[in-house]
Design a protein around this nucleic acid. Structure first.
Lengths: 347, 347
DNA sequence: CAAAGTTTTGCACACGATTTCATTTTAGGG
DNA sequence: CCCTAAAATGAAATCGTGTGCAAAACTTTG
C-alpha cells in the first residue's frame, strides 16, 4: 500500500501519511508535535506509518507557520583556524543535541561584517546568530535581524562598554574574566626572572585582543614591570614568526613573549628556536592564550591561559536557548573565568 | 512612509514592499528573480523600496514552491580536526560564493552514519549532502534523501568499487589518484636508505585509509621493500604518539614511518624526538599525507603527500552545482591527483 | 441516566513566497 | 497609421505544515 502512494518531488508529505494511515492530515501534524493532544494509540500508529513512508515534517513549511526555523547561524572568519574550528565543533555538538542545526557563514577577518552577508543570511530566518567577526556591534546585527536578541560577549577588564545609545533592555551577557589567567601568567614569568616582556598582539580591531592587551599592560604596571614591548600580529603563525624575527633582529629583543593566542605563540616559539637559535624557556620564555588542542603537543608544550571552551560554549548555548524559549525573560549574565596551564615554555 | 508599515513577526514581507511601492506582490517577486521579465525601472524602484524596508525574500517560503533550499548539508565527524576544518572552510567559501549556505552536522567517527541524524537532516531539505562519515555507502544516503543524487568519492587504487547492486545511472565521481604521491614518497624514502618502513594507519572502517594502506603495500612490494610494518591508529596525534612508542619499545622499531595523515605524523615525530630520543630524519624518517596548514610549521616541517584541498573542493562543488542545475545531465567524473611535498623529515 | 466537564477531532485559514496563464501594454515594421 | 509580435502585468493556484475554533466523542459525577 505504501508503495502505491505517489510522491511529490521525491518526499512523502503529511497528506500521504494521513491517507495511508486512514486519519486526517491534522492528526499527522499532532502526532509529530509532543504537546498536541491526540490519542496515544493513534499517534503510535501514525508514527509507524510515517516511518514506513520515510516521512519527516518539512522544516521550511513548519518554520513558516511557527516562526522558528531551528537554525542557528554562525558567522566565522576562518573555520580552518584551530581555535575557531574547535569552537564551531563544540557549538554544533551542543546545538544539534538540542534539535538545532548550524548554518555556517564566512566573512573576512580584516573587514567589518558586511550588510550583504547579513541580509542574505536573514533570508534563512535563523533563530539566533553567533558572530565571531571583528568589529561587530550588537546594533549592527539587530538592525538587520529585527527579531534577533543579541548576546553580548563582554570582556569587562577592557575599555569596551556596550554603548548605551539604544535602550536595549534585554541584552544577555557572557562575561569573560580574562584577568585571572593573565595575571597568573605575568606573575609566573616575573617569578622566573622575566623583566622585558613583549606582547604579541592580534588585530587591533578585535575587542577581545584589545582587551587582552590592555589587561596585560595594567597587570604589568601593577607588578612594576613597566610597559610591554608591543609587537603587531594577526593571530596567524606566519605573521608571528616573522614579527618575532624582526623583534630580535631589528629591535632589542625581549626575555619573554606573551602571545595573544596560542597559534601566534607557536610562531614565536619556532622563530626563536629554529631561526634565532635561542632556547625556550632558558633564553626567552613564551606564553600563549586559549589552550587549543595543539598546545600540549610535545614540540610546543606551551604554557598558556586556558579559555575553557567547554564551559564557554555551554554557557552560550544556555543563554541562547533560554532567550529563545522565553523572549521576554529578564536579561542574564553568565561568567567565564580563565586560568593558567603551566607547561614547559615558562620556567 | 516606510515607518508606517506594520511588520509581521519583525520582518518585512513582499506584500508590504508591494504596498509601499504601489505595485503588485508578483512584481516584487519578479524584481528579485533575475530571469523574470519586468521593466528595468520598475525593478529598480522595487529594489530601492525593498532595501529601505530592509526586506529579503524568505528562503523557507521560496524553497517550498521552487523546491530548492539553497542549503548544502555537511556531515563531519570532527570539525576541530585540522584536515576536516580546512575542508569545511574551503567548501563553505565556495558554496557561499554560489549562493548556498552550509548546514553543519556532526556524527561520531567510529560509528556508521545513523538514520536518526539523516531523517532529522532531511527535514531541512538540503539541495545536496556531503558526508565525511566513515562507512558511508551511497545507497544509505539515497534511501533517506530520495531526491539527492550522490557523488561518489572514489579511490580507484583501492579495493573498493561501488556495488553495482542498484542501477544508479547518474552517480558522479570524484576520483582521487593517490598512487602518484604515495609512490614518490616511498621512492624517496627508499632512495635515502629506508628498508623497514612502518605504515601508521587510520580507522579500518574508512575507505580512504584502507585504500591508502593497500596502495602503500602494493607500491612497496613493487619496489622490493616487502611488507610494511602495520601500526594501528585513528588519525589522532595522541594515538599516533603512543603507537610509535610501542612500536619502538615493545616492537622492533623501523627506519621510516609513513603516516596515514599529517596529524598522525606529528604524533609519531614528537614521540621519536621527545620520548625515544631519536633524530628525524637521521635515525628515522617520517612522511605524512594531506599537507595541512600546520605541516610547514618549523617544528614539524613535514615531508608529506599533498592532497590538494583547493583543487578537490573546487571539483566537488563543480560537480554538485552542475548536477543541481541539470539533474538529468550525464554522469561525470572529475580526477584529482596527489604529489609529494618534500620538506625536512625524509632525507 | 442525565448533566457537566474533558479530551479528541477535523474544517478552514494562515504563513510568504513562486509560477502558470490569460490579458493588457509596449515595441517594431511596412 | 495599422497590424503583429514581444514584453509586461496581475489574478489565482500552489508548496507543506501548524493552529483557532466549534463540534463530536468520551469520561466523570451526582
Amino acid at each position: 500500500m505504501a508503495e502505491q502512494t505517489i510522491r511529490a518531488r521525491g518526499r512523502a508529505t503529511a497528506d500521504m501519511v494521513a491517507r495511508t494511515a486512514n486519519v486526517s492530515r491534522v492528526a499527522v501534524s499532532r502526532a509529530f508535535n509532543p504537546h498536541a493532544s491526540i490519542k496515544p494509540e493513534k499517534r503510535d500508529h501514525i508514527l509507524r506509518v510515517a516511518q514506513e513512508l520515510n516521512y519527516t515534517p518539512d522544516m521550511a513549511a513548519r518554520s513558516m507557520v511557527t516562526g522558528r526555523s531551528h537554525l542557528v547561524a554562525l558567522i566565522v572568519p576562518d573555520v580552518s583556524s584551530p581555535w575557531e574550528s574547535q569552537e564551531v565543533d563544540a557549538l554544533t555538538s551542543l546545538l544539534q543535541a538540542e534539535g538545532f542545526a548550524t548554518l555556517l557563514f564566512k566573512t573576512r577577518r580584516d573587514l567589518s561584517l558586511d550588510e550583504t552577508l547579513l541580509t542574505y543570511m536573514k533570508g534563512f530566518n535563523p533563530d539566533s546568530v553567533i558572530a565571531y567577526a571583528e568589529n561587530v556591534r550588537p546594533q549592527m546585527l539587530s538592525r538587520v535581524l529585527e527579531r534577533a536578541v543579541p548576546i553580548y560577549i563582554d570582556y569587562p577588564d577592557g575599555e569596551d562598554q556596550p554603548e548605551a545609545t539604544e535602550p536595549a533592555p534585554l541584552i544577555d551577557r557572557l562575561e569573560v574574566l580574562q584577568r585571572d589567567g593573565l595575571e597568573q601568567a605575568v606573575a609566573l614569568m616575573q617569578g622566573y626572572g622575566a623583566r622585558r616582556i613583549a606582547f604579541l598582539g592580534g588585530l587591533t580591531s578585535s575587542l577581545g585582543a584589545r582587551s587582552r592587551q590592555r589587561m596585560v599592560e595594567t597587570i604589568m604596571a601593577e607588578h612594576g614591570l613597566g610597559e610591554p614591548i608591543l609587537v603587531a600580529g594577526d593571530y596567524s603563525y606566519d605573521t608571528a614568526y616573522r614579527a618575532t624575527i624582526d623583534l630580535f633582529r631589528l629591535g632589542d629583543g625581549a626575555d619573554a613573549i606573551f602571545a595573544v593566542n596560542d597559534q601566534s605563540a607557536f610562531g614565536a616559539l619556532d622563530a626563536l628556536r629554529h631561526e634565532l637559535s635561542l632556547k625556550v624557556p632558558q633564553d626567552v620564555m613564551v606564553a600563549g592564550f586559549d589552550d587549543i588542542n595543539q598546545s600540549h603537543w610535545k614540540s610546543y608544550n606551551l604554557t598558556t591561559v586556558k579559555f575553557d571552551l567547554e564551559e564557554r560554549t555551554r554557557a552560550l548555548v544556555r543563554l541562547i536557548l533560554r532567550r529563545l524559549k522565553n523572549p521576554a525573560a529578564p536579561s542574564l549574565t553568565e561568567t567565564i573565568s580563565t586560568k593558567l596551564v603551566v607547561r614547559g615554555t615558562v620556567g
